[in-house]
């Protein structure tokens, strides 16, 4: 009898317990919110420890994965090393090309921008004659005093300096090219870093070819002056004839003097004087 009563009691207890738990679960489901101070305290206490364990776990997991990846990483590393070497070589090539491009961009485009020259009026002129004598490097242009041309006016081509007007008639003018030994130009040699060294460009017309080391333009410097092959030569603007920053040429060779104190830079002109047909006269004097 006693045993039977216990079974009934237990059954009833279990039934109500189950019912209570199901109701509780229903009331505290995923979409319900209810005050849970004990849970909050537990969460607050556990959070720092969980964070530490998670961080450590991530670290261990990453290192564990890394162990398995080592052979693959080694292969990748070798491949990347090769690629890096190739890219470094390519980078060097590109850098040199960019430097070259920076130096010669304006020349390659056969144009130059010289602000001090741009502010003057320029008139186009055609070469109507060249000096037949081998002693003088001059040109005759079809512009004269009627066009406002005056003695000492600079003459330029698309790519650089040609010379200056030395005589003017009504409809023509004569231009002394910088190739002539008398056609000296105050110049500035600019190295790749942009620093400049002043000097005088002189023509060496008595030489046979202007594209060799004995070419038609040269400058003389002190031995310690930072002038190197590939440097560009511009007008300096000093001297009052030529506006500043008109390209003249580039240094193609440098030779030490016998004394060892001086050096000579041989300059390849930018302008192809032999094939020159049209030029511009900058009316620095005639325009005034």
């Amino acid at each position: 009898m006693r045993k039977r009563a216990n079974v009934t009691g237990i059954t009833i207890l279990v039934f109500f317990l189950l019912l209570a738990i199901l109701i509780s679960m229903r009331l505290t489901g995923l979409d319900r919110s209810f005050p849970n101070p004990v849970g909050n305290v537990l969460q607050r206490v556990a959070a720092p420890v969980e964070y530490v364990i998670l961080s450590a776990g991530r670290s261990v997991s990453d290192h564990w994965k890394m162990l398995w990846r080592i052979p693959r990483i080694e292969t990748e590393n070798e491949t990347l090393q090769l690629q890096m070497d190739e890219l470094m070589a390519e980078n060097l090539r590109l850098k040199s090309q960019i430097l070259a491009g920076l130096r010669y961009n304006e020349l390659d485009q056969a144009q130059f921008r010289a602000p001090t020259a741009d502010k003057y009026e320029q008139i186009g002129a055609s070469i109507v004659n060249r000096n037949p004598s081998a002693w003088f490097q001059t040109l005759i242009l079809n512009r004269g005093s009627r066009d406002g041309v005056a003695v000492e006016d600079p003459v330029v081509a698309h790519s650089g300096l040609v010379g200056k007007v030395i005589s003017v008639s009504g409809g023509t003018c004569e231009v002394l090219m910088i190739l002539d030994s008398e056609g000296q130009v105050s110049a500035l040699v600019r190295e790749s870093a942009g620093e400049g060294v002043f000097g005088i460009v002189q023509g060496t017309y008595d030489r046979s070819s202007r594209l060799t080391a004995e070419g038609n333009l040269q400058m003389t410097f002190r031995r310690e002056d930072p002038v190197n092959r590939g440097d560009l030569v511009y007008t300096s603007g000093i001297g009052g004839v030529y506006p500043k920053d008109i390209p003249i040429g580039k240094v193609v060779e440098i030779k030490l003097d016998r004394s060892g104190l001086m050096k000579t830079a041989y300059i390849e002109p930018i302008v192809h004087f032999d094939s020159l047909e049209e030029v511009y006269i900058i009316k620095t004097v005639g325009g005034e």
């Binding site: 738990i21 679960m25 505290t28 537990l42 556990a46």
Partner: peptide
């Protein structure tokens, strides 16, 4: 019960 409270949902599920 503590696990239920820690999880914050379905109170009683783990207790039972």
């Amino acid at each position: 019960l503590l696990q239920d409270l820690f999880l914050g949902k379905y109170i009683g599920m783990y207790a039972l």
